[in-house]
Structure formats: C-alpha cells, structure tokens
Write a protein that binds this DNA or RNA. Structure first.
Lengths: 233, 233
DNA sequence: TATCAGATGATGGTATGACCTTTAATATTG
DNA sequence: CAATATTAAAGGTCATACCATCATCTGATA
C-alpha cells in the first residue's frame, strides 16, 4: 500500500460525513444544520472539532453560518466553487500560456454557439458593450470595461453555464495577462472593430465566421503579447 | 454600495492574509509557518481563530500540518485544487449536458494537439491502452480501463496541463455518465475501432482528421446516451 | 384586536487554558 | 560511535466561558 496509515483528523472525518450527505441529497440547499453544540454532542466530539469542520466547508462555499440563526447548506454551482479558489493559484508562465490556449478554445466555441442562436436576446447588451468601449477609447482609455462586457455577454448568449464558469476561471487566473493583451494592441480601435465584426456574424447566425473571427481576435492579442514579451528581453 | 457591511470573520481575514502571501510569493511551497501559538500571539488572536484558518486552508490543499513538526506550504497545482472540489458538486442534468459539451471541446483539441506532435513519446502507451481494451472486451467487459487509459494518455501527448486538469474535472463530474456512455454503444468494439483510427491519425500527424475522429467518437456515445435516455421514458 | 417595542434566549464568534499524541532534537549509555 | 532513552515542541482535542447578534416571544399600547 502506498497510503498505509492515513491519520485522519477529526474535522476531516466530519467534513466527509457532511459532504456525503450533500452528495447523496440527504442534505439539500437551504437545509438547516443542527447547532454546533448539538452536533458536538451527537458526534461526541468537542465543539472545536465541529467548528473546524464547519469553517472549512464555509470557506469552500458549501455552507453559510449566520450568527443568532444557524448554519445552512448553500446553493452550489460550479461557478461559485471555481470562484472561491481561483485566487490562490500561483500562475507561472507555463500555466499562463496554457490557460490562454484553453481560453481561446472556449471563447471560439462560445462565439459559435452565440451565432447559432443569432445572439437571441443578447444583441442589445452586446451593442451596448460596444458603445461603452467606444466611449472609453474616445476618452483615451483602453476600453477594458467594454471589452469585458462584450465577452461576458457573448458567453451568456452561448447559453452554456459550464463554459462561462470555466471561462471565468481562466480569466481570473489570467487577470494580469488580460489587460496586458489589450495594451499590446497597436491601437485599441482594432479590438473594437473586431468586436463589431463578431457581433455582425453572431447576429447573422454565421457560425463558422463568428468562430474564426473570435479566434483571430484573440490570437491577435495573444501573438502581440508573446512578441512583446520576447522583445523585452 | 451593495455590500456595505461585510462582517468578516476573523479566520477569513487570516486566510486572506496567507493567501496574499502565497500569491505574492512571500510564502513559497515548502516554507514552514510559525507555530499556531506563535501566530496567535503575533496576530493577537486566539489559537482557535488561527486553527480555523489553518484547517480551512488545509482542507483546500494549500498547506499541510504535521504533528510534532509544523505546518508547511504545499506545492499547488490546478490539478490538485480541482480535485478537492469536484467531489461536492451536485450535478444536475443540465450541468451534465454542459459538461459533456465542454469535454467534447477539450478532447477534440487534445486529439488535434497530440496529432500535431505525432504523439511524440506516447505512441507506445497509446498502443498499450488499446491492447488493454482489446483484452477487456475479449473477456466480455466494457473496456472501461483501456478507454480511460487511452484518453488520459492522449491528453498527456497533447502537452497542455491546464487542459488535462480541466478534462479531469469534467470527468469527475461526469463519472456516472461516462460509464453509461460506453454502455450505450451497440458494441464495445466500435469504441475500440475508433481509438485505433484516432491513434493512426495522431501517429500520422493528421491534425484535422484526429480532431474530427475524436469529435465523432465522442458524439457517437453522446448521441446514444441522449437517445437511450429518451427511449427509457 | 392589532401593532410594535423591548425582553429573552439561542446561536455563532472568540478567547483561555489544559491535556494528549506524535515528532524531532538532544542527551545518555552501552 | 551507535543505539537508546529523554525531553521539548508541535499539532490535535477538549471543556468552559463570555460576547454580539439575531429570532422569537411577550406585553404594553393605540
């Protein structure tokens, strides 16, 4: 055996029990847990152990404790889960490049899906994101806000929450790189123009075009970024 | 302000401080933390609060506490992080479908990348996975083990750890669905044959073919699954 | 009777201090 | 010098106490 004597801490055991109950549906979102003191009595452990377990699960976003009220099972989504720990990853250069590749993959597919649905119900918001970016650029800014809004809204139009969540994860991991990518463009207007083209492809339902435009859009920034990085040596 | 009075628990504050230090590199993997008692004294809080913070980080896989020795920063990878979270997600049907879509996306790209490198250094392992699957099928089994080995090895050949990690996350979330997909095939040999074709495309460096074969491979199982689900009503 | 303000108790949040087991460093002994 | 015994230190667990907050009940008031 490679893992012979896994000394299992008390709180881990407790966490596992709760996780099982959540997984099997025995505990559903919104359910109220017994009080810490009751749990301690039931499991025949100290309140300390119970608290360490509950606090851990709270930090992971599984439960929610309210003073004077009690502890409740939280509604869980992939999104919230990824959220809670994206901030810790030490992103090395290698990870950055790989994440960019994943992001490219996801965004291209998102553009295609959005086009397949003709942007149904999201055209207005997409147009607004473009005008926001226009305003920003006119004021001499990079247009970051409008840029973010565009990509976020497009993801919503694609109607796949899992992709949106994973994209969000990528973006958080790439937070610093993202802004750099926009800065690396010779002219912010290029990005803006590309957004307009993508929007037209989406509106027109041209799946292939939307996908290849998005790929081009991201690869432009991507290539600029790599090039810039190399020339700065 | 929408979030005016965020009552921040003590242990959260402590966790955040540590996370910042990890993110900025002030704390590197392998570093030893001060003892719980020292931390309590330094931060002027009780050992209870310190412990709740440390236990939470431990459960998330950020640190590692050894009795009699101390607490150390752990080597972090996207992989390990995703691991610790995947087990809790309550996967509803919608999530399953979306995850399948993400998985399709990732696997197709993985096949393409593997082909682009001609499977460099992984051909032997891929062939072995195929013969494993052959053996399994010959014995009347589904060939699950060989199937897993093939996809895992292909991911390695693609040489993008982030994709592998995310694929792993998808698979964990789809654990039950995955076996069902294999079962849904009219004949296990179909999956085996598709693996062979993919391997040939990879070996030959035919990027497009590898991608479309993989897409077809997964869509076959996927469609069968959906169909099966519907006819079972 | 209906309403609302205050009292009350339950609950999570925090702090202490104690004791145990395990580990690692040190001292002891052959 | 090596093996062993000792000891100090670290995390693991427990019991208890007190606080701030929230939900609920109660009773006075309109």
């Amino acid at each position: 055996m490679l893992e012979p004597l896994m000394k299992t801490r008390l709180y881990e055991n407790i966490v596992n029990q709760f996780m099982d109950m959540i997984r099997t549906g025995e505990l559903k979102p919104g359910d109220k847990l017994p009080t810490e003191r009751e749990l301690a009595a039931q499991l025949n452990v100290s309140r300390t152990a119970i608290r360490e377990a509950l606090r851990s699960m709270e930090l992971m976003g599984l439960i929610d404790s309210k003073v004077g009220s009690g502890t409740y099972i939280r509604e869980m989504t992939l999104d919230k889960l990824l959220d809670s720990f994206a901030s810790v990853l030490t992103t090395n250069d290698r990870m950055n490049i790989e994440m960019l590749e994943v992001r490219l993959l996801l965004e291209v597919e998102i553009a295609r899906r959005a086009a397949r649905k003709n942007g149904e119900g999201h055209i207005a918001a997409l147009e607004k994101s473009i005008s926001i970016m226009e305003d920003e650029i006119r004021k001499g800014k990079l247009g970051l806000e409008g840029d973010n809004a565009f990509h976020t809204e497009l993801a919503k139009a694609a109607d796949n929450l899992a992709m949106i969540s994973l994209l969000g994860l990528c973006d958080e991991l790439l937070a610093s790189t993202r802004k750099a990518a926009l800065k690396a463009l010779p002219d912010p207007k290029i990005g803006l123009m590309q957004h307009r083209e993508i929007l037209e492809a989406v509106r027109g339902g041209d799946v292939e075009k939307a996908g290849s435009l998005m790929r081009n859009h991201l690869e432009t920034a991507y290539v600029n970024l790599e090039h810039k990085g190399k020339t700065e040596n």
